[in-house]
């Protein structure tokens, strides 16, 4: 597994989690991330699309092309490999999150 899970893996985790629920296209995903996180996560369209394309290349996502109003649109869906990757990312994230919570104000005061 790659080492970049702490911050670099966050967009990948969110994309896989959203796509595990429903098939979606790029704009939909960007809008969903923005609305669910109340604007806290705004990775930018320059970053999201290359990640989606890499996940397709890694066979973590499957792609379905459709023509909508005369323009091509790519719909993404999580594959079995993508589900495995999602579980790995979620495990790692839980560990990171549990580790960070140990540094909460109260815990530090209690230890001191």
């Amino acid at each position: 597994m790659k080492k970049e899970l702490f911050i670099d893996g966050v967009p990948e985790l969110l994309l896989l989690r959203l796509l595990a629920q429903n098939e979606m296209y790029g704009y939909e995903l960007v809008a969903k991330i923005h609305s669910i996180s109340d604007g806290a996560f705004s990775f930018g369209e320059g970053c999201i699309y290359p990640i989606l394309h890499r996940l397709v290349g890694d066979r973590c996502l499957s792609i379905r092309k459709e023509t909508v109003s005369g323009r091509p649109r790519r719909y993404y869906r999580v594959t079995a490999k993508g589900n495995k990757r999602l579980s790995q990312l979620e495990d790692s994230w839980s560990k990171v999150s549990a580790g960070i919570s140990k540094f909460g104000k109260d815990s530090i005061h209690a230890t001191a």
Binding site: Y25, G26, Y27, V30, L52, H53, S69, R71, R74
Partner: peptide
């Protein structure tokens, strides 16, 4: 193909926002 895919995604993104 990489450039084409990105341009198609940005184009779709723009059009969706316009709609």
């Amino acid at each position: 193909s990489r450039a084409k895919a990105l341009l198609e995604e940005w184009n779709d993104h723009l059009q969706s926002e316009v709609e």
